[in-house]
Simulated scan of single mutants.
Amino acid sequence: MVGCTVFTPAVSAREGVEVGGNSAFSKLVSASDIEQSAAQQYAQMLAQAQQQRALAGNEHPQVQRLRAIARRIIPYANEWNPRAKDWRWEINLIGSKQINAFCMPGGKIAFYTGILDTLKLTDDEVAMVMGHEIAHALREHARERMGKTAATGLGANLLSQVLGLGQIGQTVTQYGAQLLTLKFSREDESEADLVGLELAARAGYDPRAGITLWRKMSAANKNAPPQWLSTHPAGDTRIADMEAAMAQVVPLYAKAQKPEKSKKVP
């Protein structure tokens, strides 16, 4: 990550949310292939933004703010996905009125100025958005979607061909262009909500900001839903699910507020 140094915290016996293991469908597609495809698409997107003078520079206050928040969250990613320790994390800001943000496989994060400016997000609320998007990458939801596509496309021949990854690998090529526009299932979104709340809470951000965030999102949904909201089912049920998870994540936030003598940032 540009300009970021992170520490590796010690995480105690399993506390927080429970969402089960990653989908078996994700194993049908190579993680490294998807991460490579994501890195290429991300680089292309940044180059295009640079050409349009829409890419915020490293010294931009909001870029520094986003990267500071990411530095606190990222160390807690490894527990959710061991691949994350080798990801080359990137956090960038793009000038656009879109109310949107995402994290592609491999830790490629982008925020649009619209989501920060229009919703007037606090640091805690930014952490909720970032944690949610990072959770999608950690839970390999894009890889799962591609695995399901591969299984559907290969049909009855899938089991006999699963060791020969030619056709399955082709799925990454065919569907890789969709990484920026993937729409996740309601189950994926619920997982990302919960894992994101935990990541942010462990990093010292108030998970109750997830509730205020979604209320702001709902208020912004006057005529048409913001792009970020259109792919993230919202509503009273979703807020209720977050409220139900507070008993698991608020104690993690409280613990993060206590200074640890052994915790040092290089």
Rank of each mutant, 00 (worst) to 15 (best):
E144W: 05
V126I: 15
Q227V: 07
E189C: 01
Q248D: 14
P233A: 12
R72M: 04
A54W: 07
P105W: 08
R143D: 04
A38E: 02
E260Q: 15
K120Q: 13
M242Y: 13
K216L: 03
A43D: 14
Q52T: 02
Y253L: 07
W89N: 06
Y42S: 04
K85E: 15
G107P: 03
T231V: 10
E90K: 14
R83V: 02
A201S: 10
E243G: 04
Q257M: 03
N81K: 12
L28H: 03
Q161L: 07
A142H: 06
A219H: 08
P207G: 04
A31F: 06
K255D: 13
G57K: 14
A56P: 00
L213I: 07
F102S: 03
L179C: 06
A38W: 01
A177N: 15
T181G: 08
R72L: 04
T212A: 10
S12M: 12
M130A: 04
V250R: 05
Q50T: 10
S30E: 04
S32Q: 05
H141A: 07
V172D: 15
Q227E: 15
M104L: 15
W228H: 08
D124L: 01
A77L: 13
K255W: 07
Y175D: 09
E187I: 06
V265E: 11
G3A: 09
W80V: 02
L55D: 07
S160W: 07
Q41T: 02
H232V: 00
A24P: 03
T122D: 11
E35G: 05
H141C: 04
A177E: 15
E243D: 07
I168D: 11
G95P: 01
L159E: 03
T149S: 14
G204L: 00
A24W: 03
M217V: 08
K222L: 12
G20Y: 08
T113W: 10
A244C: 12
D124H: 05
A101N: 01
C4M: 06
P266G: 04
K255P: 02
R186C: 11
D193Q: 07
R65T: 00
T231E: 13
A245L: 03
I94A: 09
V250E: 10
S262N: 10
I134S: 08
V17D: 08
Q50N: 12
A240D: 14
R143Q: 15
R14A: 10
A77V: 03
Q52G: 14
A10I: 03
L213H: 11
V249Y: 04
P233Q: 10
V249T: 13
A200E: 15
T5R: 08
I99H: 11
Q41E: 08
S190Q: 14
R186V: 09
S96H: 06
